[in-house]
């Protein structure tokens, strides 16, 4: 798999090397100096330490974030030759072939259309049902409802127990046990199949968000809450008028970062079905995940297609994300 990326990598490696040489010589110079406490030498000491601290994280970032993504863009313009097991750049005439075949799939392929719809449904449900539930539950934990310690553990259980285990138990429970009670199978019935998957995603999605929201809530100034209590406001009003606005910046992070989930969320389907989920249950994230995870030529051949699709998704998702961020900041009054 020698490709354009490997060549780039060589260059990056040599660049990194010269940077590290530069840092080392800089360090040596700095440490050689005696210690008169002038502002500038202290500054320089700080700078050296600063560089030492950020050098590794940045190098790692350069390769595994920037490098990976540049390579991903390059891949979108390549094709895999099964005969030689090599990637080649598409010729000038077929430069955009991967994009074209993805777009035609998106239009003509009924399964892909279903997957797109499912992804949107899942995203909207997560936003409109899971987020409010997360916030309300967090609020109750923060207000220390009776047995809140117990509830806290329960709400964190979906994070502790592996998603694979939770989904297997959910599936066995629904298909074997619940079916005997309600008379039909929620997952295999077409009408309820995807709804059940959505339910599963909300139901098994509690955990980290609650942790972070309750943390944010405990940071709210006590005097504000006390003031509210003196006024005798109800719990609902406290939640709505004090807590929510004050933790809104935290919520914003999840809202904004969550938009990519529209395209990447595979809805736990891989846990449920491995590579063989039914067409009417698939989401976009799942479709692309299962295409490339196997280490064989059939999988390699899908890399360019998946990268092209990813690039297109990114191009769509970025303006949406920026718009959401802009709107959130513009119309939700900041309380800071």
């Amino acid at each position: 798999m020698k490709n354009a990326f490997s060549r780039c990598l060589e260059k990056i490696k040599s660049a990194c090397y010269s940077v590290s040489v530069a840092i080392h010589s800089a360090k040596r110079k700095i440490f050689k100096k005696s210690r008169p406490r002038t502002m500038s030498s202290r500054r320089r000491g700080e700078l050296a330490f600063f560089i030492a601290l950020v050098a590794y994280p940045l190098a790692q970032f350069a390769v595994f974030y920037i490098g990976v993504n540049i390579n991903s863009v390059l891949l979108a313009f390549q094709h895999f030759d099964t005969g030689t097991a090599q990637f080649y750049f598409n010729g000038a005439g077929e430069l955009f072939d991967n994009f074209a075949s993805f777009l035609s799939d998106l239009r003509g392929n009924a399964a892909r259309i279903t997957a797109t719809l499912n992804s949107v449904i899942l995203y909207v449900c997560t936003l409109c049902i899971a987020l409010p539930l997360n916030l309300v539950f967090s609020f109750f934990l923060y207000k220390k409802v009776p047995a809140y310690g117990f509830f806290r553990v329960v709400l964190f259980l979906p994070q502790i127990i592996s998603a694979l285990v939770v989904s297997l138990m959910f599936r066995y429970f629904v298909e074997n046990a619940l079916t005997t009670v309600i008379g039909f199978n929620l997952l295999t019935t077409k009408k309820t199949g995807f709804a059940t998957i959505v339910f599963y995603n909300i139901w098994a999605g509690f955990g980290t968000q609650i942790l972070i929201y309750t943390s944010a809530m405990t940071k709210i100034d006590d005097s504000l809450v006390e003031f509210g209590e003196l006024e005798g406001i109800s719990l609902l009003r406290e939640f709505w008028q004090i807590t929510l606005p004050l933790i809104f910046p935290t919520i914003t992070i999840f809202l904004v970062a969550g938009i990519a989930g529209l395209f990447t969320n595979q809805a736990g389907l891989y846990n449920f079905y491995g590579g063989g989920a039914r067409d009417d249950l698939q989401t976009l994230g799942y479709v692309f995940f299962v295409r490339i995870i196997r280490s064989d030529n059939a999988s390699y051949a899908q890399y360019p297609y998946a990268s092209a699709a990813g690039l297109l998704f990114t191009l769509v998702a970025t303006p949406i994300t920026l718009a959401v961020k802009y709107l959130l900041e513009k119309f939700v009054p900041s309380t800071e």
């Binding site: 993504n69 990519a260 395209f263 890399y303 699709a309 690039l311 998704f313 990114t314 998702a317 994300t321």
Partner: peptide
Amino acid sequence: PIIGNLAS
């Protein structure tokens, strides 16, 4: 949102 870079 960077999507679909698993292959890369």
